[in-house]
Simulated assay, not measured.
Amino acid sequence: MKKKLILGCLLSGSLITAGCGDGSGGSDQYINPYATVVNGEVVQQSVSTAGFKVDGKDLSYIAAFSMENGKVVYSVSNINNDGTFKINLKKNLDYSFVIFDPAGSPVLYVSDGASNVFFIRGETYVKIIVNLDQTGNVVVEKIEHDQNSELKWDDLFKDGDDDKIPDFAENDNDGDGKPDYDEDGDGTFDGVVDKDNDSVVEGSDDTDDDHLPDPIDDDDDNDGIPDDQDPDDDNDGIPDDQDSDSDDDDDDGN
C-alpha cells in the first residue's frame, strides 16, 4: 500500500485491544488539526491462531462509517495478523465500525446490542472481543475503550436488514441511484477496493499526507479552506469552475 496504515485501533470491547499512536508522521509538514487516530485490536475469545482468523474466516479490514453534512464519510484500515489496527479519523464525529474479509464482504457489524456508535473525541484505544455463535457467525462478546471515545446507540446507525452495513450508508443521499457505500455499483463497499491500482484501498488513501484519509477529508489541498468553499480545491491554479480535474486529488489526470 502507498500509505498502509499500521493496524492497531481498538473499539471498546474485549475483542479488540491496542495502543494509540500520536497520529503524526515525522516528515509531514502539515497535520490536519481535525485528524485523530484510533488504535485497536480485534481479539478472539479464548482462542489462539496463526494469523488472525475466526474459525478460519479472515478478518482483513476494519472500516469506520460516519455521516457529515448529509454525506457518508469513512476510513479504512488493514487488520494485522495479530489483530491490531490503526485507523485515522476525523474527531468529534459518531462512527459505526464494520469488519470485512479479503473479498470485501462484511463479516461483522460492531455492536453490543445496547450500542452501535462510537463517538470519537480524540486519540483513543479500542478493544473488540469476538466469538462465534452457535450458527458459526462472528459476534461481539465485549467492547473496551478509553475516555476519549464513548459508546452509545443511534437509530440512524442501526443495521435493520442485518447485512452488516449501517442503514444510512445504504441510502442514496446524493441521488445518483446507487447506495452511498457503493458508488460504482459493483456490490462491494468502495473503501476496501483499490480502484486506482496504487496498492492502497480507497478508504485509507491519504493523497495529501495530512492524516485524514481522502473519503473523510474536506480540505484536499490543506489550505485551511473546506473544499465546498474553496474556489480551487486541488490547488492546481485553475479555478474549480474551469477545472475538469477539480476532484483529481493527486493531479494525475484521473
Rank of each mutant, 00 (worst) to 15 (best):
I79A: 03
I79H: 00
I79Y: 00
N80Y: 03
N81K: 06
G83E: 08
G83D: 10
T84S: 15
F85V: 06
F85K: 02
I87Q: 10
L89C: 11
K91I: 05
L93K: 09
D94C: 06
F97T: 07
V98I: 14
V98M: 06
I99G: 04
I99R: 03
F100L: 08
P102A: 11
A103H: 09
G104V: 08
P106V: 03
V107L: 15
V107C: 10
L108A: 06
L108I: 11
L108D: 06
D112E: 14
G113T: 10
A114D: 15
A114E: 15
S115D: 13
S115Y: 00
F118L: 14
F119H: 14
I120P: 01
R121H: 05
G122E: 11
G122P: 01
Y125N: 13
V126N: 07
V126D: 02
V126R: 00
I128R: 00
V130D: 02
N131F: 01
L132I: 07
T135Y: 09
G136H: 06
G136W: 07
N137F: 04
N137R: 11
V138K: 01
V138Q: 04
E141F: 07
E144Q: 13
E144F: 08
H145E: 12
S149M: 13
E150Y: 13
L151D: 05
K152C: 03
W153A: 14
W153I: 04
W153D: 12
D155M: 08
L156Q: 13
D159P: 10
